[in-house]
Design a protein around this nucleic acid. Structure first.
Length: 361
DNA sequence: AAGGCGGGGGA
DNA sequence: TCCCCAGCCTT
């Protein structure tokens, strides 16, 4: 039986963790809440190696809360320039002014006041209190989410509410009762150095004995990526106008949009207007449409739902027959036309089965 | 070329 | 409440 993860993380941290980061205690500079705050906000979306020179420049120019509050926004942006996500810099600046107005020119010492400041959420507030004041608050940044999801075998995308709640609960329960600052740095370091997103170094990991992902060979599967975006859905009605000679009316698509220049079926955006449109192409002879099996076609950026409607035995309007972008087409001619795959499939299905035409599925 | 990343803000 | 976004970086 393994011990809790805290003692193993602390032992690992003493030997392999990062102890020389400029926002940690150094001979020349103590670890202050201000320096931890600046570093944590910089680290929110940026990796350690990138942050270090920005951090050093920032705290040299603005070494404490009052200096930041007194700076102009332009100066803060200049110091931030190149880090990206500039809302972070604006929030730092605004928060510093709140600290001067409401908290005596220091970062507040309580979680509720910290998390109320712009740019400080639950994880950053916890990191500030744990790292700079040694208070027992959990953090849950990307590294910690990965470590915990793998160790406990938590399925699902960490951005999903239920998954995130589970991870917070694990973070809370695992957080050490001693050496809080070291523990907090340790679990972040483990995620950054050992429990990396790809090719984790499980052979060097102090948690592998009871790591669910390692034991079950799931390190590549956890944490699960965000689900593919639900593609927007567009609807269209495709008109299949068939004359007595079993020809079908085709329409060449415009130069822009999907399937540019290909031959396809006339389309209506609206089912209710489809008959009106059909009547512009042909005499419908009083027949009404057969509603065929609808089908979907996936594009990179959206999903197209197609409702095909079939009219049999219509008679073409002579006036539209000669138009360059319209043609009545017999089954044997389809093969020679550039035609979207789902449309070709639909037409083939209809031509092969005259009595019970189905969509292409 | 694609996806990760804490928190804010809009729907 | 959920979802999207920002900008840069790594893979």
């Amino acid at each position: 039986m393994s011990t809790g993860i805290a003692s193993r993380l602390l032992a690992w941290f003493d030997r392999h963790g990062r102890h020389d980061l400029p926002w940690q205690d150094t001979p020349s500079c103590r670890r202050t809440p201000y320096r931890v705050w600046i570093s944590e906000v910089m680290l929110q979306q940026t990796q350690v190696a990138t942050v270090i020179p920005y951090f050093e420049r920032f705290v040299r120019a603005l070494p404490h809360v009052r200096a930041l509050a007194n700076a102009s926004e332009d100066e803060v942006f200049a110091l931030w320039s190149g880090l990206g996500y500039y809302a972070r810099a604006r929030n730092l600046h605004r928060a510093a002014r709140v600290c001067v107005e409401r908290h005596g020119g220091e970062l507040p010492a309580h979680f509720e006041s910290l998390v109320a400041l712009p740019g400080i959420g639950r994880s950053t507030a916890g990191a500030i209190l744990a790292l700079s004041r040694g208070e027992r608050f959990p953090i849950l940044d990307g590294n910690v989410k990965r470590v915990l999801a793998r160790h406990a075998g938590v399925r699902g995308w960490p951005g999903a509410r239920a998954v995130e709640e589970k991870l917070w609960a694990l973070a809370e329960s695992h957080t050490s009762h001693e050496r809080i600052a070291d523990y907090t740095q340790a679990i972040m370091d483990l995620g950054a150095i050992v429990c990396t997103r790809t090719l984790p170094r499980c052979g060097e990991c102090p948690l592998s004995d009871d790591c669910t992902a390692f034991q079950q060979g799931l390190t590549a599967e956890l944490p699960q990526p965000r689900p593919a975006r639900a593609l927007p859905v567009r609807n269209t009605v495709m008109l299949i106008l068939r004359d007595a000679q079993q020809r079908v009316l085709l329409q060449r698509r415009g130069a822009s949009g999907v399937w540019p220049g290909l031959w396809s079926l006339p389309e209506s955006e609206d089912l209710a207007l489809a008959s009106n449109l059909a009547a512009k192409f042909a005499h419908l002879n009083g027949t009404h449409a057969e509603t065929l099996q609808p089908f979907a076609h996936a594009f990179t950026h959206y999903r197209l739902h197609v409702q095909p409607l079939l009219w049999r035995g219509v008679r073409m309007h002579r006036a539209i027959a000669d138009t360059q972008d319209l043609r009545w087409c017999a089954g044997g001619e389809f093969a020679h036309l550039g035609m979207p795959a789902p449309v070709r499939k639909l037409l083939n299905a209809i031509i092969q089965d005259r009595r019970a035409p189905q969509g292409p599925g």
